[in-house]
Design a binder for these strands. Structure first.
Lengths: 189, 189
DNA sequence: TTATATATTCTAGCATTGCTAACTTGTCAA
DNA sequence: TTGACAAGTTAGCAATGCTAGAATATATAA
């Protein structure tokens, strides 16, 4: 009997609607507008139902963040394919990273400044998180001995650029120059 | 008559006590523990008094953040003095930046992830903010034509490293290697 | 010195938040 | 049909940021 299956499907679908609503509201009105009551309204259930899916509000943010890491990894992989040489690929990936952060500010915020519970390099690390790092490593990868150090540094530079651009602390105009500086550093010696 | 002066002094002192209490509580228990009621208790006044000093809670966070920028600038300047050659100074400054973020996580959080109202490169930008940027620029400074681009990139790399280290997304161990990679990139050609 | 006006500070309360206990309704097997 | 269990709702708690209006202290004028 497919009753259990149907219930499982319904549950998964409802969970999906919760994160989708959270993401939409956050992107339009900021994360502070994402309240349990608002989400309950949106999915047309009462508030306690949300707690049958997520332990608390932070867990909803974390779920959105995990989605984001999956999408970021995909975007980076696609950008890497658009160039032939190493340097071009790195520049392309870097620009794609910054464009991603700019296009989905609330999503990026969930991925990096909220959701403090999401750990990397642990046993329970979600595959999406590893995948995003791997996508960066693939672009940095060849022709370096210290791939991990280089990837971490590349990632940090990109994240820093994205964050300082978002908060208006560095000029929007000079983006390409800054990216070139970062990429030259990695592709160089 | 020094009545007005005395009142001004008392007012300034009370304001100082508010930000000091906010900072202390944040550093010990996180920013979520910094509530208006808690601060009111701490300075031994009722809650509305706080609103005679700051427009809202965010303004208190912002005030702490400004303090932080002043201290960061000082720390960077001091680090720059400890080396003779350019490369050494840059490495020293970078390490001092990361150490600052690690030593005062709540303060750093106020400076970069909260306090969204603080703008750079605007007319009303507080001098402390410009000073921190200037301290970095002074270290990057000579021997480059594009000082501003280089400084922005340097800053972004440091901020990214600090942020990803804080959230446990890059290894604490390889800090020196990453810093070397960043510095080599700026000092190089 | 005393009375009035002004400035200062407090009490009390509102609306909103995340979250939960306890009731009610629906569902399925015996 | 009935009784056990699951699913969902109502109602409410404690905490938050913030504010109106009462109460008190302080400075100025008579």
């Amino acid at each position: 009997m497919g009753i259990a299956e149907r219930k499982g499907r319904e549950r998964a679908e409802r969970e999906q609607r919760i994160t989708a609503a959270a993401r939409l509201i956050a992107e339009n009105e900021g994360w502070s507008a994402v309240t349990i009551r608002r989400l309950a309204d949106e999915i047309e259930y009462s508030q306690p139902v949300l707690y049958a899916h997520f332990e608390n509000r932070d867990a909803i943010v974390a779920a959105v963040a995990v989605e984001g890491f999956g999408e970021l990894a995909a975007a980076l992989r696609q950008a890497a394919h658009e160039s032939i040489d190493h340097q071009g690929a790195l520049e392309s990936v870097a620009m794609a990273y910054l464009a991603f952060a700019r296009a989905h500010p609330a999503l990026y915020e969930a991925m990096f400044t909220m959701a403090t519970g999401l750990r990397f390099a642990e046993a329970d690390t979600r595959p999406e998180l590893k995948d995003a790092f791997a996508a960066l490593a693939a672009a940095v990868g060849p022709a370096r001995t210290d791939v991990e150090v280089a990837t971490e540094t590349f990632w940090a530079a990109l994240h820093g650029l994205a964050d300082l651009e978002r908060s208006g602390r560095i000029r929007q105009g000079a983006r390409a120059e800054r990216v070139r500086l970062v990429v030259n550093c990695l592709v160089g010696p």
